[in-house]
């Protein structure tokens, strides 16, 4: 089963539905955060996952980390489905780096305690060998060992993010889920952290799922790109393919949009016309059609199929030959 071709991480038709209540006595309604997601990550790949705020990126991260169970579908690591019983083993192999280093470090703990926590939870080594591991990883992320006794409030955003990276890597995981790891940082620090992540990947042969709402950041680091819209992957491609020859109208709009200064705001709506839809009541047909520049009648009625392309996949009527042929006939 573990042939070299087995993807290290695979999602098979993963759907996640939350039940949300509107108002105090409102009715409970389903919110589909992930809708039939299938993705594969090969070892040493960096899959960039882009899409506006609210499209389900963090939900996917939580499912991959085993923190939430998918409503349906499967997550496989090295071809084996993840389940409740191998929680600790999963934790050794997949670790997260979060967006906001001001929230990801416990303010009541010293840096040493924060980075040593994974080793303690997994009963790795004794106190002395743990301290050595912590010092080593601090050096790797470019922090001096004198910060060990510091508290997070004494450090800058970039330094905190290095601590968060050290905590994620101290157990030497194979896969790192980076959920917008630079969005909350000063622009001057962002590239330092991105470079560090790139170096670490080479050094430890890591596989990244790199979540971002910013295509420019993804281009810098990713080998493959998946574009998400309202819980679905609408286009997946190699990074060259994506930037040289973008196909999906949504990917195009993302590319054209300028960088947003505020993290989490997503794409300025001037480029996309309408606001992001309410995920509780998604638009009919292709979910993107109300904002699409190339919308036609069929997009409003029928959801597009997933088409295979040379390097990836696309979900758009414009690139569905049977649909286009019918349109020409009519």
């Amino acid at each position: 089963m573990n042939s070299p071709d087995t993807p290290i991480l695979e999602l098979r038709d993963v759907t996640k539905t939350y039940t949300v209540k509107q108002g105090l006595f409102g009715k409970s309604k389903p919110l589909t955060a992930l809708n039939g997601i299938s993705l594969q990550l090969n070892r040493s790949d960096v899959l960039g996952l882009v899409g506006e705020s609210g499209c389900g990126k963090s939900t996917m991260a939580k499912i991959l980390l085993g923190l939430e169970a998918p409503t349906s579908g499967q997550v496989l690591v090295d071809g084996k489905p993840i389940g409740g019983e191998n929680r600790l083993e999963l934790a050794r192999r997949i670790q997260p780096i979060f967006q906001d280093p001001y929230s990801s470090l416990n303010p009541r703990k010293s840096i040493e305690d924060i980075i040593a926590l994974p080793l303690r939870v997994h009963h790795i080594g004794d106190e002395a060998s743990r301290l050595k591991k912590v010092r080593d990883i601090l050096d790797v992320v470019g922090l001096p060992s004198r910060v060990l006794t510091n508290y997070p409030s004494q450090m800058s955003g970039g330094q905190r993010q290095r601590v968060a990276i050290a905590r994620a890597l101290v157990m030497r995981p194979e896969i790192v889920i980076c959920d917008e790891p630079t969005s909350a940082l000063d622009v001057s620090v962002q590239s330092q952290i991105l470079n560090l992540l790139g170096e670490l990947r080479r050094e430890f042969n890591l596989t990244y799922l790199f979540i971002s709402h910013d295509l420019a950041v993804v281009e810098h680091l990713a080998t493959r790109v998946a574009v998400m819209y309202l819980g679905q992957v609408v286009e997946e491609n190699s990074v060259e393919g994506m930037f040289v020859q973008t196909r999906h109208p949504y990917s195009k709009a993302l590319l054209e949009s300028v960088l947003t200064p505020e993290p989490g705001l997503g794409v300025p709506d001037t480029h996309l016309g309408m606001a992001y839809p309410n995920p509780i009541e998604p638009p009919s047909g292709c979910h993107f059609h109300p904002r699409c520049a190339a919308v036609s009648e069929i997009c409003k009625q029928q959801a597009p199929r997933t088409q295979l392309t040379t390097y990836g996949r696309i979900k758009c009527h414009l690139h569905d030959e049977t649909v286009q042929a019918k349109l020409v006939q009519a």
Partner: peptide
Amino acid sequence: NRDYVTAAQAIGGSTPRVILSEIMPN
């Protein structure tokens, strides 16, 4: 819902551990 709690859960920390060493001190 702070990220350091999520991080402790992702590390594999047990529920009592997460409550006692991540939530209670705060």
